[in-house]
Simulated scan of single mutants.
Amino acid sequence: MSVSGGPNVSGPRWLSTEELATWRGFVKLLQRLPAALESQLQQDSKLSFIEYHVLAHLSDQPGRRIRMSELAVLANAELSRLSHLVGRLEKRALVRREPDPHNGRYTQAILTETGFAYLAEAAPGHVGRVRDLFVDALTPDELGTLHRIADKVLTRIEGPSGGRADDGRPRTR
């Protein structure tokens, strides 16, 4: 909705026509890009978009392991949803869970060798699709601008602590 009011009118600051068009285009991109990427992942690797990213996040961790609560933050998933997802990946021998050796109250997700090999096989097709749909559609300057925009908006979303609790641990939802 685009409604304008005078400078002394209290209430919402409505979006201008251009702001609304930009916002709607961005929302459409947020909806369609993950679906397009998931389609490729499902067809080529039998992985969902979030399964791929969970495996990728695990591959980036020291020892390819991380606490489930921290992985939930990285994957932007509720801990219960992530637990079900990891359970599915465990059945495929891509991930396993173990108690955290430093604090048994926590559980770690660990990328197995089979999981790492599976991810390594899935990655070229996924990266090719990301490049085709996203990276190659933009100039280097546009990519830099988008990176700065994403950082700026994420800072507002996550606040000054960067999405971390006061004690430095990632916030869980």
Results as ranks from 00 to 15, higher is better:
residue 47 L to I: 04
residue 96 R to P: 00
residue 33 L to F: 14
residue 92 R to N: 04
residue 99 P to I: 00
residue 107 T to P: 03
residue 10 S to G: 12
residue 129 R to A: 05
residue 101 P to R: 05
residue 107 T to W: 06
residue 110 I to W: 05
residue 72 A to D: 11
residue 126 H to L: 01
residue 35 A to N: 09
residue 116 F to C: 06
residue 20 L to V: 12
residue 109 A to I: 02
residue 43 Q to H: 12
residue 158 E to V: 10
residue 25 G to H: 07
residue 29 L to D: 11
residue 113 E to F: 04
residue 87 G to P: 06
residue 36 A to S: 13
residue 66 I to Q: 14
residue 85 L to C: 03
residue 159 G to M: 13
residue 153 V to D: 05
residue 133 L to G: 03
residue 165 A to Y: 13
residue 156 R to A: 13
residue 173 R to H: 12
residue 27 V to W: 05
residue 27 V to K: 13
residue 85 L to N: 06
residue 31 Q to M: 13
residue 38 E to F: 06
residue 86 V to Q: 06
residue 81 R to M: 08
residue 6 G to S: 07
residue 31 Q to V: 11
residue 104 G to L: 02
residue 110 I to C: 07
residue 75 A to S: 15
residue 91 K to R: 15
residue 56 A to Q: 11
residue 102 H to W: 02
residue 163 G to D: 11
residue 149 I to K: 10
residue 58 L to D: 07
residue 5 G to S: 06
residue 53 H to F: 12
residue 151 D to G: 14
residue 96 R to N: 05
residue 171 R to I: 14
residue 2 S to T: 11
residue 13 R to L: 08
residue 111 L to H: 07
residue 164 R to D: 09
residue 108 Q to L: 11
residue 45 S to R: 01
residue 73 V to Y: 15
residue 2 S to E: 00
residue 14 W to G: 15
residue 83 S to L: 01
residue 10 S to D: 14
residue 8 N to M: 03
residue 61 Q to L: 04
residue 77 A to F: 10
residue 142 E to S: 03
residue 120 A to D: 14
residue 134 F to S: 01
residue 14 W to S: 14
residue 18 E to Q: 15
residue 12 P to C: 02
residue 36 A to W: 04
residue 106 Y to L: 03
residue 64 R to S: 10
residue 157 I to K: 12
residue 12 P to N: 06
residue 134 F to R: 00
residue 46 K to E: 15
residue 87 G to D: 02
residue 63 G to A: 07
residue 88 R to N: 11
residue 97 R to Q: 08
residue 74 L to H: 15
residue 149 I to F: 12
residue 52 Y to M: 01
residue 76 N to E: 14
residue 93 A to G: 02
residue 81 R to C: 05
residue 53 H to R: 07
residue 92 R to C: 00
residue 166 D to P: 14
residue 146 L to R: 09
residue 30 L to G: 12
residue 67 R to W: 08
residue 59 S to P: 05
residue 24 R to E: 15
residue 63 G to H: 13
residue 71 L to W: 09
residue 140 P to L: 00
residue 40 Q to P: 04
residue 100 D to M: 02
residue 102 H to E: 10
residue 150 A to K: 10
residue 123 A to C: 02
residue 120 A to T: 09
residue 125 G to T: 05
residue 25 G to K: 10
residue 139 T to Q: 01
residue 149 I to G: 03
residue 22 T to L: 15
residue 86 V to G: 03
residue 95 V to H: 04
residue 41 L to V: 03
residue 31 Q to G: 10
residue 130 V to T: 01
residue 5 G to V: 01
residue 52 Y to C: 01
residue 33 L to C: 03
residue 23 W to S: 10
residue 11 G to D: 08
residue 139 T to V: 00
